[in-house]
Design a protein around this nucleic acid. Structure first.
Lengths: 229, 229
DNA sequence: TTCCTTTTCGTACTTTGTACGAATATATTG
DNA sequence: CAATATATTCGTACAAAGTACGAAAAGGAA
């Protein structure tokens, strides 16, 4: 009737398991992106046949749901023993690190129809952190909306930059600079030439800047609330 | 040799045109989302055959590029006659309004390999606005990264909320609340019960909150720079 | 009319997810 | 052990998608 695992934990690859399939899917997505992840390729990667996987997962869509949940599970929740600001910083720095590794995930994380339990766990933990610090419900909602939007937006932009692992974008610079100036995009050309294409520039550095900016703003808003009370 | 339009501007629908196809594609995407936009459906919507469109566009991918460019073109650039803060506010409020209408677009806008001219135009205008206000190049880069990330992230989250046109999400509330409490998500349950599911709540209201928060933070950062100079 | 260019579209091939049920492996029972 | 039942794998095939190819149709120009 119901399938009991009994003893199948010796070969997590040779004998198909939900977990093995999930793991392989994450590997492939991390390497080649989510759109290159097809059931056929996944089966080949597992040394199996496409239809064999359907005994363990109901559909590709459900598999992707599980992948997204798995990504959520790797993000740290705000440690309860810390004050709210460093605690929230931990959660969002962790999230960015995880999303940088699983760069295919951001567009999927909020667009699945129903949020999974890992997703809910995070929402709950973050809101709890704000509440303990004295944020009103309204401010909680705003704070979360702003921080989450920023996180996903940033991770998303970062994922679509050229070559997410190696140095930067210096190699593209040469020919494009002329186009920029000829097209009348002088500010862009200046920014590119004087900053972005210089060695040492990293788009990712802006994340900390924005995170601090938002956290400071939230602190101010929270203090304002307390004062008005 | 080269195709000259000559006289085909009478029936922008019956006689296929690049513009007519683009317009119809935008209509369909606005209504049903980008993943429901197939060449076959699009052709049907135009009263034509799938392969007929390929005389005017090279591929579906290029069509989507054009759709994205068209969305960019509808966003206002920061008015040069205004001070930087209200000018930037105009640009980002406009962007949110446009992205709310074209809710399928955010995941595509930054992920196309090469940015189109409309995209560049916006980047250039926004950076120019910051520069005129005295932002350093570094601060420009940070400011743009933060604001754009926020914008796309917010638009993206908003697009994946239930029912993007009608009232809210009150209809879902009932059964889920119990699940939330039983699952130990008490803070979430509180936030949902006391705020989100109440009439009058709108996720979109957080946009202004976050925009002001970020703009104030940028102003502070800019003043800090000036003071240090 | 005849010829040439522009525009439309029918057919067919490839890639994808996956329904269906047969084939095989594994476990349980007599 | 054999017989039976269950759990797992996979071969075949179909639908939906993008689009290559070249024939067909439409529209002028000579």
């Amino acid at each position: 009737m119901a399938q009991k695992p009994k003893k199948a934990e010796k070969d997590s690859r040779l004998s198909l398991t939900r977990e093995g399939i999930l793991e392989a899917a994450l590997e492939l997505a991390d390497r080649d992106g989510i759109e290159k992840l097809t059931m056929r390729r996944l089966a080949e990667h597992l040394g199996s046949a496409p239809m064999s996987m359907y005994y363990h997962i109901p559909s590709k869509d459900r598999l992707i749901d599980a992948m997204v949940e798995s990504v959520f599970a790797r993000i740290r929740t705000p440690p309860e023993e810390l004050p709210w600001k460093p605690a929230i910083r931990v959660r969002f720095q962790s999230a960015r690190a995880v999303l940088t590794r699983h760069w295919w995930a951001p567009p999927l994380m909020e667009s699945r129809r129903l949020p999974g339990p890992e997703n809910l766990r995070h929402h709950n933990a973050v809101i709890g952190c704000f509440r303990r610090a004295g944020f009103s419900l309204e401010l909680c909602a705003h704070a979360y909306a702003v921080l989450d939007s920023y996180l996903y937006g940033f991770a998303f932009e970062e994922a679509s930059l050229p070559s997410q692992s190696d140095g930067g974008m210096q190699d593209i610079g040469g020919s494009m600079m002329d186009e920029l100036r000829n097209g009348g995009f002088e500010h862009l050309a200046e920014l590119a030439g004087e900053l972005v294409l210089k060695p040492g520039y990293s788009f990712g550095d802006s994340f900390e800047f924005g995170l601090d900016l938002i956290l400071d703003g939230l602190e101010r808003a929270m203090r304002n609330e307390v004062r008005r009370r």
